[in-house]
């Protein structure tokens, strides 16, 4: 038996392909299903703003007219479907934008050598 230290350090247990597929599936379930059961209470900042009396200063976002505003899909009346669909669309958009950015940075990084 010969023992060699690998320069890479700890070894992978699953392939990158499997990691991304399983990870994406978990995220789809979180955004598409689990999000329906999220707490509807105001978050920490909203709560503080309400209790200290500056919540009224909030103005409507310029994006308030978006068909996905508030994590729902315009025209879908079922709350579970509307929220789940909005979550899945958002997840795909984040994946495409971040994926594109990473590809671009990799290409630029290679060109620089």
């Amino acid at each position: 038996m010969s023992a060699d230290a690998t320069p890479e350090g700890p070894r992978p247990r699953v392939s990158t392909r499997r990691l991304v597929l399983v990870g994406a599936a978990v995220c789809l379930v979180i955004a598409g299903v689990v999000s329906f059961f999220a707490s509807r209470h105001p978050d920490g900042l909203q709560h503080v703003a309400q209790s200290l009396g500056f919540a009224g200063a909030a103005r409507e976002s310029a994006a308030a007219g978006s068909p996905l505003a508030g994590y729902g899909v315009d025209g879908v009346s079922n709350g579970f479907l509307s929220g789940g669909l909005a979550g899945v669309v958002g997840l795909v958009v984040v994946a495409v934008v971040m994926g594109g950015l990473v590809l671009l940075l990799r290409r630029l990084g290679r060109r620089r050598g």
Binding site: T16, L19, V20, G23, A24, V26, C27, L28, I30, A31, V34, S35, F37, A38, S39, R40, H41, P42, D43, G44, H47, Y71, G87, G90, L91, V94, A95, M98, G99, V102, L103, R106
Partner: peptide, 26 residues
């Protein structure tokens, strides 16, 4: 690089799930 994409997607998904922290706050 693939992990960077996965992390962004996970952060988006997880940020949709507010958890209660008491006294009507999440």
């Amino acid at each position: 690089a693939p992990l960077a994409g996965l992390v962004a997607v996970f952060v988006f998904a997880a940020q949709m799930v507010n958890f209660p922290v008491g006294a009507g706050t999440s």
